[in-house]
Design a protein around this nucleic acid. Structure first.
Length: 422
DNA sequence: TCTGGGGTCCTAGGACCC
DNA sequence: TCTGGGGTCCTAGGACCC
């Protein structure tokens, strides 16, 4: 049973274009939160030589010269468009794993090669017709090969967006053209290591002996190699919406030096993390708070300062999480340091239904507290984020991020619908 | 001046227990 | 001077993904 990887082409840029036709056929980049660096590019922006992940200030001349449009990332819009794409895909191929905001793996059924390719084409046409988003479909016997097929489908325009890799000769030919760093599961560090041993392409990696791979790249690396050889090690995973860790974090809009602002930001992140925790009906016992200074200013020096605290009882109570986290922030804070960013991570997550009973009833995350929290979440869902909030999370939030080039929430906010002029 | 925000899995090593 | 060994759990850190 082959796997398909369905990947939206230049997803964020494509979403922006669906609602702003002026952007069609023009170079466009999407900036990270805080407008710090480039996280997505249209095909034209790639051609203009804008690298992925580059800080915005470094490419200002290029932007100007090529008349490149910029947008701040608009996750409300991308998230909603993603749901539409995934819905259509799931209708076509029921056994589907949503892997990220713009990618999904599906099991493809078909009695022969032509049939399988036709299924790929149908998926592509339906998604394009119903959402305006173009996708590429890579099909192969393992997920890792499907990833490579997908890249190849994108690169070769004559394929019409769909490639099924099934013939051994054809697979090796593609693997020989794939740099080892482009293999799913091989990151920067492993790629550098492999290059040192003259392993340049995906094909070279495929031919390495198991023992060597196991020693150098652990079991995960070995799985990758087996998958390259066509032996499936990774299956479609039923998407679970219960996370094992919940993280809330932002870079500050400007450097923060005072303890009050830090505590306010950490309180805000705690409140958001607690909200995510409740939305998956879980409670957590561990809170990690980390304060981050400018790592580029003093390379080699420590720039992350974190601590983890274990609560006596698992909770999803914003108040309790905020109180603990801001105490930790106060403890970590050093006068004279300039902070750029902070994060709050909740771990030790268990379903709310499995909550440990405690001798001292009053301390527990009780039903009463839970109802209070539920009401708070409902109010915020109904009347907008931060309608009801803990005062410690701040009113003005001077550390809030920059979003200078934000497009509208065309699909999720009544106040920001598209206007059509006749 | 200006460098994202989420996640996952694996391993080594320490604490602790019997 | 001598000072077990094995199992389990937890955490920090490193690798990876988009």
């Amino acid at each position: 049973m082959p796997f398909a990887l369905v990947d939206c082409n230049n997803f964020y840029a494509s979403c922006e274009r669906v609602f702003d036709p002026d952007l069609k056929n023009k170079p466009l980049v999407i900036l990270s939160n805080n407008d710090g660096c480039v996280i997505a590019r249209s095909a034209e922006a790639k051609e203009a030589g804008i690298p992925m992940g580059v800080p915005e200030f470094k490419i200002r001349p290029l932007i100007k010269k090529n008349h490149i449009a910029m947008r701040s990332s608009n996750y409300a819009l991308y998230g909603d468009m993603s749901m539409r794409v995934m819905d259509i895909l799931t209708q076509c191929t029921p056994n589907t794993e949503v892997y990220s905001i713009d990618e999904a793996f599906s099991e493809i059924h078909g009695h022969d090669t032509a049939d399988i390719i036709q299924t790929g084409k149908t998926i592509r046409e339906r998604i394009l017709r119903d959402t305006g988003i173009a996708v590429s479909v890579g099909i192969a016997s393992t997920k890792t090969l499907a990833k490579i097929a997908n890249e190849a489908a994108k690169a070769d325009k004559s394929l019409g967006g769909v490639l099924y890799l099934y013939d051994d000769g054809q697979i090796d030919k593609v693997l020989k053209q794939t740099p080892v760093s482009d293999v799913w599961g091989v990151g920067k560090n492993y790629a550098t290591m492999l290059n040192r041993y003259a392993v340049q392409t995906a094909f070279d990696l495929k031919m390495l002996p198991d023992t060597w791979v196991r020693a150098k790249m652990k079991v995960t690396g070995l799985r990758t190699v087996w998958e390259l050889r066509g032996r499936p090690c990774l299956d479609i995973e039923e998407c679970s919406d219960t996370r094992k860790g919940i993280l809330s974090s932002r870079s500050f809009g400007r450097p923060v030096e005072n303890c009050e602002d830090i505590c306010e930001a950490v309180s805000h992140f705690s409140a958001r993390a607690a909200e995510k925790l409740r939305s998956q009906k879980s409670v957590a016992t561990n809170i990690t708070v980390t304060l981050v200074t400018d790592k580029y200013k003093a390379p080699g020096q420590p720039y992350k300062f974190g601590a983890t605290c274990t609560l006596p009882n698992a909770t999803a109570d914003s108040g309790e999480i905020i109180a603990t986290a801001s105490k930790m922030a106060r403890y970590l804070f050093r006068q004279g340091k300039i902070y750029k960013k902070a994060w709050v991570i909740l771990t030790g997550i268990v379903p709310q239904s499995e909550i440990q009973q405690d001798l001292f009833d009053g301390e527990r995350y009780s039903e009463k507290k839970h109802y209070l929290m539920e009401t708070l979440d409902e109010l915020n869902a109904k009347y907008g984020k931060r309608t009801v909030l803990q005062a410690s999370t701040g009113i003005d939030q001077p550390w809030q991020m920059k979003q200078q080039y934000l497009s509208k929430k065309y699909t999720t906010s009544w106040n920001e619908l598209m206007t059509v002029r006749a």
